[in-house]
Computed example of a mutant assay.
Amino acid sequence: MFSVKGFSKEIYNSRKMITSLAINDFKMKYAGSFLGITWAFIQPIVTILVYWAVFQVGFRSGQVEKVPFILWLMSGLIPWFFHYEAMTSATNCFFEYSYLVKKVLFKISILPIVKILSSFFVHIFFIAVMLLIFAIYGEYPTIYSIQLIYYVGCLIAITIALSYITSSIVVFFKDFGQIVGIVLQFGIWVTPIMWNYKMVPENWRWVFKMNPIYYVVEGYRDAMFNHVWFWEKMNESLWFWNLTLIYFVIGSIVYKKLKMHFSDVL
């Protein structure tokens, strides 16, 4: 059964190995290409510019929540980029590191964490870029901005919880990786990232609030310009952490049930 204390202790004891593998994974991901790790930053930047051009220039979107559209858009897209990249990478981690999975003494339970940490390096850069662009527009960090640390933790927690489910299942059902990709592509549209959830009738908003990534996206916006503390949304916070814990428990059960057979099918 899943134990937060036991899981945290295992991660802490393996922290040096996780960090080392994550740094190596980050470097190797773009090894051999002319621009190298620069590609990790180019694609998200281009995506943000494309969405900005389509929605603000093309559709002439005005201010949202009293800030320029580009700031509102960035604060939603940046956490989504991390979640998308981390989930995609972590889902296939046992395939990518199959040579480690077959080693009896290696703790393969850290592999999803390795892939998520590798993706997190890029996320740190984009948080810095976001803060810089906000400052250029005259929106400077406030005391509320410190909540970014909390919401980054939320994003990492839900991604880890989900990745143990997806990475365990995909070993035996390879098509599941494609399903995860489709769900993630669909997810960017059902999560209020490029549209304001206030457009939805109030009696239907609870449907979108059930999505844990909604909590994180709105949290980034609360930290950057809405100026709302997370404890002011206690019901949503409790829902998020209860749901994350449930995913952790499911992921723990699925992983423990299937890991003994990983080496047989990889």
Rank of each mutant, 00 (worst) to 15 (best):
F2M: 00
S3N: 07
K5C: 00
K9M: 10
I11V: 15
I11M: 14
I11K: 15
S14P: 00
S14F: 02
K16Q: 14
M17Y: 10
S20W: 09
N24Y: 11
D25W: 01
D25R: 09
K27E: 11
K27H: 10
K29L: 07
Y30S: 14
Y30I: 03
S33L: 04
L35F: 08
L35D: 00
G36T: 00
G36I: 02
T38C: 13
W39L: 07
A40F: 10
F41W: 05
Y51N: 04
W52Q: 02
A53H: 00
V54Q: 03
V54W: 02
V57N: 05
V57M: 05
V57R: 03
G58W: 01
R60M: 08
G62E: 08
E65W: 07
K66F: 09
F69N: 06
L71Y: 09
M74K: 13
W80V: 09
H83E: 04
T88I: 09
S89C: 04
S89G: 11
T91I: 10
T91E: 08
T91C: 10
C93I: 14
Y97P: 02
Y99P: 00
V101E: 00
V101S: 01
V104D: 11
V104M: 10
L105H: 10
F106M: 06
F106R: 04
I110A: 11
I110K: 04
I110M: 06
I113F: 14
K115A: 11
I116W: 08
S119K: 02
F121V: 08
A128T: 13
M130F: 06
M130Q: 13
F134H: 15
A135T: 12
A135W: 14
G138F: 09
G138I: 14
P141F: 11
Q147F: 12
Y151W: 08
C154G: 05
L155N: 15
L155Q: 13
I165S: 06
I165A: 02
T166H: 13
I169E: 00
V171G: 00
F172K: 11
F172P: 01
F173Y: 15
K174Q: 11
K174P: 04
D175K: 01
D175V: 05
G177H: 03
Q178E: 10
I179T: 12
V180G: 03
V183M: 06
Q185A: 13
G187E: 06
W189N: 05
W189Y: 14
W189H: 04
V190A: 07
P192N: 12
M194V: 15
W195I: 11
V200P: 08
V200N: 03
P201I: 01
R205M: 12
R205Q: 14
V207D: 06
P212N: 12
I213L: 15
Y214D: 11
Y214V: 04
Y215P: 01
V217N: 09
R221W: 02
F225A: 14
W231L: 07
W231C: 02
K233Q: 08
M234I: 14
E236M: 07
W239A: 11
F240E: 08
W241K: 14
Y247R: 03
I253T: 12
I253N: 05
Y255W: 13
K257V: 09
K259L: 00
M260C: 07
H261E: 05
H261K: 13
H261T: 01
F262L: 09
V265K: 12
V265G: 01
